[in-house]
Design a protein around this nucleic acid. Structure first.
Lengths: 257, 257
DNA sequence: AGAGCACATAAGGTCAGACCAATTCTCTTC
DNA sequence: GAAGAGAATTGGTCTGACCTTATGTGCTCT
């Protein structure tokens, strides 16, 4: 019985001492073990599939099944002819699972936006509390970029995205950053198609500036407040821009990348 | 619910003529398409692998690779002899990807806890704002359960977990709930092993009660404050209970049985 | 006639070997 | 020493077969 990855870990529903280890899962666990003990680090290359199959005493298709599962979780990336590698770069969570969940359970845009608000408001507050000086410049630059591209919606949006990411980064918490980016990508996926019809880019830029100033002044309360107001208005604006697009948009490429 | 998927999804579904796409992804996208247009709902059974292979013009191992990827994302579950099903039940996000990320990038317990704090404090605030009457009882019951099991740490922990879940549920946002449960499972995975040495269960129960009361009184500010204080102390307590366990802990059981 | 059991069927899980395609390495050649 | 051609490596896919588990059907026994 292959269940989705992830610890059920809730309450007493945790009673499956079954040892009917699926071979594919054996592969996943083997890699997990290597990662846990530090034998595999981001960017490292895995042992070739054929060798892995021999080591574990399973067939190659089985190994491949396990590797596909790992790839779906964003743990590994495979390049034909080169090998399979542990995903490098900054910590990231794929939006795929969340997209599927949204489509399956009919999450509304407002619900997604609200969750995003919780994360980003919290991040803004933490960023202001921390007050890391070297994180201010990137934020300031994106604000400048917004004011400079008021007539180019697509470019403006790029600065918008980067500004929000800069805030999450300034919160100095990789977990929070990964969560913010995961859920933001859902929102922006849509936003990119509707931003052309946006009207209040100047007002949007002003709000971003106020958020920046609050963080710069190390005023968490104000940072939270400004971020809250900004996202509330952004939600309303986006709702008016797109009145008939579906909510649960699955990514064009769920695996790999 | 926003849309009954009225809009024809032309974009990414049509740009398959490119042959450079991975076959396994093709399977994932095919299922994604069916889900998006509502042809597949939670609990539904998928077409048998062999038929799916024929429909898509690929081999069965390829189909299986795609299904493994979907299973890894928590979208499907397969039961030998029965079939492959769209995951039913309440919306949930597996903790696997986050666990791997934690292990790979050495997330600290404090970082995880902090992210959890952002989510749960936000959830508590929303729960208080919403003030849904029918969500109060479950929370109250768990508080009662805590007071009743002060001498049974493991049972106490179960009530603890359920209390926090009840709050997230009272926030009435499935996205937020899924996120809270995902990150909480990471924390509780550890907590279960250390709770035996906990000392201040009574104080913990009191704090939970204060959180409950704030939500019951529909006082968002107080709810946020109490939740913040509770989690700050809980983090400190857990830190003292376990002084030398590794941070990036992969689930002992990535795949259930 | 009804209940229980056994077998047939269906479906996922695994294996084996082969071939293709892209990449990387190496050795030759200028 | 550098550039190019060819060989080796490695992931991607296919074919076909067999096993294990679940389900459903029909037969037998009561």
């Amino acid at each position: 019985m292959v269940k989705p990855f992830g610890a059920p870990m809730t309450d007493e529903t945790q009673k499956d001492p079954a040892l009917d280890i699926q071979s594919a899962d054996q592969v996943v666990r083997h890699i997990a073990l290597l990662i846990e003990r530090g034998a595999l680090r981001p960017g490292d290359r895995l042992v070739p599939e054929r060798e892995l199959a021999q080591e574990l005493g399973v067939s190659r298709p089985t190994v491949r099944a396990g590797l596909h599962a790992l790839a779906a979780m964003g743990v590994t990336e495979s390049r034909q002819g080169a090998g399979t590698f542990i995903t490098g770069g900054p910590p990231r969570l794929g939006a795929g699972p969340l997209s599927f969940l949204a489509a399956l359970h009919g999450f509304t845009r407002d619900q997604i936006f609200e969750a995003r608000k919780v994360l980003e408001v919290g991040a803004a507050g933490l960023a202001a509390e921390r007050g890391l000086a070297d994180r201010l410049a990137p934020m300031a630059e994106e604000v400048t970029g917004m004011f400079a591209t008021l007539t180019e919606p697509q470019t403006f949006l790029v600065h918008d995205v980067r500004f929000h990411r800069a805030i999450a980064a300034a919160a100095d918490n990789p977990v929070l950053l990964a969560l913010v980016e995961m859920i933001s990508s859902l929102v922006y996926e849509q936003r990119r198609r509707t931003v052309e019809h946006a009207i209040d880019l100047k007002e949007s830029a002003e709000m971003h500036r106020r958020i920046y100033q609050a963080i710069r002044d190390r005023d968490p309360e104000r940072a939270r407040l400004e971020m809250t107001r900004h996202l509330d208005l952004a939600r309303a604006a986006q709702a008016s821009e797109q009145l008939d697009l579906p909510a649960g948009v699955l990514p064009s490429k769920v695996v790999g990348g």
